[in-house]
Design a protein around this nucleic acid. Structure first.
Lengths: 136, 136
DNA sequence: TTCTTGACTTGGACTCTGTCCATCGTAGGA
DNA sequence: TCCTACGATGGACAGAGTCCAAGTCAAGAA
């Protein structure tokens, strides 16, 4: 976690208390929080932090590749701090629980050239869906 | 397209002019429209149709499996009438263009049992991302 | 054909998520 | 310590979608 703070400092980020708190919230637990959840946890540590600041910081973290943005349900985007290990997501269709998973092989290889329609394909996001043990 | 209307009638749907128009808009072109785009096209045929009715009808079509809902960008959901042939989506990261694609093999098989965490996994949604020929 | 009724539609208010912007505050270099 | 440009603030705004009370009408019954 201070890892992340180090990397941000190395990138020339001005280290404000707000940015520190957002980075700490994300680094603290490997779950997939919405922006509002990040804000709620941040407020617990720094009551005056504004919603817009959380959105700005999350957007910047995504832009530099420290955090991955995912929208598994078309509602609020979620932020995944586990950006340095390629993985996909397994989502419970009932309760929304999300787990990081690691399929075998590279999902890009199964898309043959004639199915790429001239696109330069750079990545594949896979969302596995089903029921978690508690909902099944 | 009258195919779809037949199937809806067979399911006991009350065939109102609104539902007919929404079904026709979707069946008419194999693109991926947002709810608002469906509404705009529906209004062209039936000026009084309400936005809520379009949302209701789309939701019902999704629920019975006649239409697939996709959210490729975390913004408006899109509706894909091509629900009877399994496929995935290829999205341009720049302009948002979406194409239906058919990868080889079944994406579910690459998720080993020990990576399923007790979930009953029923499907995999794959979004390939890259640049389309026009944006590359 | 007309009647009846409950399913469907309407439209406006509301919620949720996210963005914008003018103003204020402060981190960090000189 | 002082400066100043970068970042934070908070309130207004926008886009997407949901909700609900009241009105309408498709389709079966008579």
């Amino acid at each position: 976690m201070s890892d992340l703070l180090e990397r941000l400092r190395a990138r020339g980020w001005r280290m404000t208390s707000q940015r520190r708190v957002v980075a700490e919230v994300l680094a603290g637990e490997h779950v997939h929080l919405t922006a509002d959840e990040v804000h709620a946890r941040a407020v617990a540590r720094l009551p005056e932090i504004a919603r817009a600041t959380v959105y700005n910081t999350l957007g910047e973290l995504v832009a530099i590749g420290e955090v991955v943005e995912l929208s598994t349900d078309g509602r609020a985007k979620r932020y995944d701090p586990n950006a340095h290990h390629a993985h996909q997501h397994l989502v419970c269709s009932n309760c929304g629980l999300i787990r990081d998973v690691h399929p075998t092989g590279d999902p890009l290889t199964v898309l043959p050239p004639e199915e790429r329609f001239g696109f330069t394909v750079s990545k594949a996001d896979v969302t596995y869906r089903g029921l978690c043990p508690a909902c099944a």
